[in-house]
Design a protein around this nucleic acid. Structure first.
Length: 325
DNA sequence: AAAGCCTTCAACCGCGAAGCT
DNA sequence: AAGCTTCGCGGTTGAAGGCTT
């Protein structure tokens, strides 16, 4: 028997999402948390497949997402992580809070690839392009940029070099990742651990040298609010022993709500179909009108609505949207 | 002004992994 | 253990807007 499609595609809508659909999805996820994407469109009243809903949420609607171009710092991290991990965009994204794999992948393909090529670096192998020597002879600035990318300043010497490449050896680009992994002499799991444990950069100042004001990302209000920790923790690795950037930033964590859902549903034999008919599991729906008005308030920026919030919506909104106003 | 080309990025597709029964 | 379901990932597509001619 062949593989079943992820959903019954008959009558399902495809293509760009409308504001109305977004609203429905946000409302549903914030109220019920993330579980069983297959059931989401049905329960949220959307003519989409679950996969489409998940993608829309994770890549666009999630409140902890940053918007706008990647900063110079983020770009540098992407390049270094790509050198270590290859096209494992989700792994790379996990090192960049508020960024999605799709976003990073797109940015890589549209911006970074070109930038690297322009600088005489092969974006696949992270090696100098064959004619790069000639180019850099003609353009010392490019050489300098290249050195900045691959040779961090002395203060960053403890930063793990992504690749230990023998430039005399002809290497198959496809084998490059294998080589880098082998050279680091770590297993898959440990590799990740090592990357996480390796201080990427010493200070923000070092990272931002050469930062162009015309490349300042568009800062969304939620970006301003996200780090709850003292500002020093975000700029100095010495102030934080945590290897998890997300933890350092104390980003809003939405998983806990799934736990809430799960625990409230555990009385119900983990039956997804029943989850949505169980009163305890959908307690927040009791305040549906209130919640929707909050949601409308969030979306429409109408500040007439200031009624009491549920614990969940307060947590969520404290984390991102509510702090905006 | 408009036709054609280029760039960007949201969204889709297919596959593999993980979890469940 | 095997089959099925769901999720997550990476590659690809296509619509929309910008740019060039």
């Amino acid at each position: 028997m062949g593989r079943q499609p992820c959903c019954d595609k008959v009558g399902l809508k495809k293509g760009p999402w409308t504001a109305e659909e977004d609203k429905k999805l946000i409302s549903f996820i914030l109220t019920n948390g993330q579980y069983c994407w297959r059931a989401v469109p049905k329960l949220a009243g959307l003519l989409r497949c679950g996969k489409s809903c998940r993608l829309r949420w994770t890549n666009y609607l999630r409140p902890d997402l940053k918007r706008g171009l990647l900063s110079e710092y983020e770009e540098k991290m992407v390049i270094d992580l790509h050198a270590q991990l290859g096209n494992r965009w989700s792994k790379i994204a996990s090192h960049l809070p508020g960024r999605t794999d799709n976003e990073i992948k797109n940015h890589w393909n549209t911006h970074i690839k070109k930038k690297l090529k322009k600088m005489g670096i092969d974006p696949i192998t992270h090696k100098p392009l064959p004619n790069a020597n000639q180019q850099t002879q003609n353009h010392p600035q490019q050489e300098q940029q290249q050195q900045q990318l691959h040779q961090p300043p002395e203060e960053e010497q403890n930063y793990q070099q992504p690749l230990q490449i023998d430039f005399d050896t002809e290497v198959d680009p496809n084998k490059e990742l294998e080589i880098s992994v082998e050279s680091s002499n770590v297993s898959e799991g440990k590799e990740e651990e090592q990357i996480m444990a390796t201080p990427q950069f010493e200070t923000m100042d070092q990272l931002m040298n050469g930062f162009c004001t015309d490349e300042v990302p568009i800062i969304e209000p939620n970006e301003i609010l996200m780090p709850c920790a003292p500002s020093s923790s975000a700029t100095s690795t010495s102030s934080s022993n945590s290897t998890n950037i997300l933890e350092d930033l104390q980003l809003p964590d939405f998983e806990w709500f799934c736990d809430y859902i799960d625990s409230s549903l555990s009385n119900n034999n983990n039956n997804h179909e029943d989850k949505n008919t169980n009163n305890s599991s959908v307690a927040l729906w009791d305040d549906d009108d209130d919640f929707i008005s909050k949601l409308n308030w969030l979306i429409s920026e109408d500040d007439d609505c200031d009624g009491p919030l549920t614990q969940f919506s307060r947590t969520v909104t404290d984390s991102w949207a509510f702090g905006l106003f």
